[in-house]
């Protein structure tokens, strides 16, 4: 058992070192880059973290969740409530815990739903939470929005980077674990998975909760960058679509696919907004459609073992 595992580690150690080096290099950015670059990079890292957490659950299972904004929003409100009394890392953990508790409860009900029904429900969750928070705030606190404690852009940057690093490690380990294998089996055929002994409900719940932990943690960090939040800002459905699109664009088959998708997307968004502010959404949409049509397994899918796939195709054609 040790032998094949070891060989795998050797083969994977090179990309592992590259990723570690890249993360370390990014960590030095605040030393020399402009304040604007640090803020921009925090956003890119946030998108990378969100799309990676999206891909953790939705990638292997094929359950498209549009609940990202809901969990992100829970994290935001965690910081809005406790930002003045807790340090940022503690806020991240609290935001993560609240999000995964909600994800667990919601998942227990909705993960019975399959396909588009699940997707619609998760999207509904964003609206539900938004209006619930709005109602609670206006009824009990007599307010609409809240101010959030600020920790400075460099702290935000490092907390995001730490989150992304932890998430990369978690996603890497998850893929190699039995739970990861079970998630892929569910994506391949949920019925078949159940009948070979996989507790599909438990596995889906676990992955859904884990991925929403990271979403909540990301929300807790980002909230501190915005001085003021209200339910509309916190539960913005764009935060559900963007991570999903980035993950699909980058490709969810590979660990770094969603990260690549986030970087490309964020850079593209930045360019389009500054150059074609009025056409930006149209161009963005067109690129997205083209990406889905022509690169079903994402940008990283293009690099992926192409020649091997070709070879395998030959006997099928013959038979």
């Amino acid at each position: 058992m040790g032998n094949p595992g070891l060989r795998l580690d050797m083969k994977k150690s090179v990309p592992f070192a590259i990723v570690a080096a890249a993360l370390a290099a990014v960590a030095f950015l605040p030393r020399f880059a402009s304040a604007y670059s640090v803020v921009f990079c925090s956003s890119v890292i946030m998108y990378a973290a969100l799309s990676l957490s999206y891909a953790m659950f939705s990638g292997p299972t094929g359950y498209v969740s549009l609940a990202t904004a809901a969990f992100f929003g829970v994290g935001i409100y965690t910081s809005a409530f406790f930002g003045k009394s807790l340090p940022l890392p503690a806020l991240m953990i609290a935001g993560g815990v609240f999000s995964s508790v909600i994800a667990f409860a919601v998942g227990a009900i909705t993960l019975r739903l399959r396909g588009v029904y699940f997707t619609i429900f998760t999207f509904g969750l964003v609206e539900l939470l938004k209006h619930f928070v709005l109602w609670t705030e206006t009824t009990f606190a007599g307010t609409r929005g809240r101010t959030v404690a600020s920790f400075g852009s460099v702290t935000v940057f490092y907390c995001m980077l730490a989150l992304l690093t932890a998430l990369l490690l978690a996603a890497f380990l998850l893929r190699r674990s039995r739970v990861g294998k079970a998630l892929s089996a569910i994506g391949e055929s949920e019925d078949a998975a159940a009948h070979i002994g996989i507790n599909t409900t438990a596995v889906k719940l676990l992955a859904f909760s884990l991925s929403s932990f990271a979403m909540g943690a990301a929300g807790a960090v980002m909230a501190t960058r915005w001085a003021y939040i209200d339910p509309g800002i916190a539960f913005n459905s764009l935060m559900s679509f963007m991570p999903a699109l980035m993950a699909i664009f980058g490709g969810t088959d590979r660990l770094l696919g969603p990260v690549a998708g986030a970087i490309v997307f964020a850079a593209l968004e930045e360019q389009l907004i500054t150059r074609f502010p009025s056409l930006y959404m149209i161009i963005f949409g067109a690129i997205m459609i083209a990406a889905i049509l022509f690169m079903p397994s994402g940008v990283t899918g293009l690099i992926r073992r192409r020649p091997a796939k070709r070879k395998e195709d030959v006997p099928v054609g013959d038979s």
């Binding site: 039995r178 294998k181 079970a182 089996a185 998975a193 070979i196 002994g197 996989i198």
Partner: peptide, 8 residues
């Protein structure tokens, strides 16, 4: 392998 891992 998936069956062997989860079946028991």
């Amino acid at each position: 392998l998936t069956s062997a891992q989860f079946g028991k």
